[in-house]
Design a protein around this nucleic acid. Sequence first.
DNA 1: CTGTTAGCGCCTTCAC
DNA 2: GTGAAGGCGCTAACAG
Lengths: 325, 325
Amino acid sequence: MTIYDIAKEAGVSGSTVSRVINNRPGINAETRKRVQAVLAKYDYSPDEAARGLVSRNSGMIGILVSDIRNLHYIEGAYIIEEKMLESGYCSIILNTGDDSGGRAGYIKLLASRRVKGAVLIGSSFGTPDIEAAIQLHLPSVPVVIANGRLDLPNAYSVVADERGGVHEAASYLLKKGRKDIIYLDGLDTPSNAEKRCGYIAAMEEAGQACRVVGTDGTYHGALSVFASILDSGERVDGVIAAVDIIAMGAERAAYDRALRMPDDISIIGIDNSPYAELSTPRLSSLDTKLSQLSTACADTLLAVLGGREAERVSIIRPSLVIRET
Amino acid sequence: MTIYDIAKEAGVSGSTVSRVINNRPGINAETRKRVQAVLAKYDYSPDEAARGLVSRNSGMIGILVSDIRNLHYIEGAYIIEEKMLESGYCSIILNTGDDSGGRAGYIKLLASRRVKGAVLIGSSFGTPDIEAAIQLHLPSVPVVIANGRLDLPNAYSVVADERGGVHEAASYLLKKGRKDIIYLDGLDTPSNAEKRCGYIAAMEEAGQACRVVGTDGTYHGALSVFASILDSGERVDGVIAAVDIIAMGAERAAYDRALRMPDDISIIGIDNSPYAELSTPRLSSLDTKLSQLSTACADTLLAVLGGREAERVSIIRPSLVIRET
DNA sequence: CTGTTAGCGCCTTCAC
DNA sequence: GTGAAGGCGCTAACAG
């Protein structure tokens, strides 16, 4: 079914139908009503691809998520998707995976769909090859990166001040009299580097020794790493973990050894994901304000898309949520 | 940039460029090479919308998710998205929310994008109004519903045998000597009704009294409901919950009252979501095989799209994962 | 082997 | 106020 089928049945021409569909003025009320009746009869929906072709507007935006396994990011994608849909944009959400090589391919895919804008979720998108791919394939549509930086004229950033947030978290523990605070790191991303810096800065300012331990970023990985630290007899009375899931691994290791939280040991995760509230004991966590950050991404994109001004870099301040650890 | 720009620079006609792009045979090797060089120079990607217009193939499928708050479903959407992308299909993932009224609008939206197929995730899509909307807007593309039923010639179902699974879970507890097993229900969905039936059947077969208690499906809601049950002095030594998050609320209530699991009370959740493994103590759960189910949805859709035969109804057998509760 | 022509479904001049 | 014609970027059929 096309507008011409509608036109025939309403006894008008295709362009009249088009005008009615698009609410253009200058049409006889009678005619309009007649066309609308036929439209309603079939509950007709025009082919968006065809209309995009002529109006040069696909009505679509792309959302790239770096890691599907990170539910945190997925949630952000959904928040953005929902906000964009409210403004009439359809989203193509793609999970690019960690594979840095294939990333450019996803940018190209978005370009082939002629998206009007894009949001990249995750600091790992802030790399030179992504920058090059955007320059090549999406040079003239706004690109918003969540939690990362991109040095491009069409790029916008919305970042959480993770360094400052972690600094605050470490200071909090220090103030509570903790001495031996270790930092459980995650995968090697720009975002995690920021957090680590915040920890190191806070510890050095307080004249305490730093202790950064790497993990593979998984619950089980963190659990075994932290378990062996506890079993080694090393003194630890505070933990800050790069993400909640790592903190939960540590929490479990402590729990298994009957350590009381937060008396014997205090653990703080990062992200304040749903996990935090659900763990036992409830995990204290640095809230990086995912939903606020996602909303800001959508707002920024919408602003630029609407021809309005937008901040080149928006900063979200994390806040500490103290629960039972 | 269009294929004509490429054509001009390569000194050929548009159709030749089109042929090269689509790997059509019957082109002089020299010419092909020349065109490819220009294509590569600009890393050109053809407008998929325009291509879809003529080839009558949008290359897109739609994925509707009923409830964004259910991370479980979102994960399923991603698995499907990924599989479809491997086969060259782009997904439009939409979060329809619980609002049954607006659902039809989403179906229409997919229709306007001329999707080649759709996957509806969640039993709540198995309603007459959705059926009508599909009949009206997507009468001739395959629609796969995950965990629900749709009585339509173009519909396919992939369902987990939740009734059987819950029956097995209840039987397991009964075999372990539990007498007072209560069932914590969730929201009113067809899927939850199935589960409840499994519980009731198992209890009746064993000659035990049933006790179904409603919750609002949230962690906190379940926690307070179950807490008051425990505090009322009612005897409970077993719990089956409609979803893991409810089970975790119950778990926490038990934990707060120093009940030992599984000695004093045994709790089994449903879905075996990531939460289950991460909770303390680790939650036993009925694995409804989300990833297997999602994969089956994608496979079914791909099969029909590829002109192959596909099961009208595929059934996935859940399995019990016993952990620490 | 390659170019020309027509048309996918829609919108936008431009006449009438 | 309305219709006819042309074109968006691309592919398919038909010539040559």
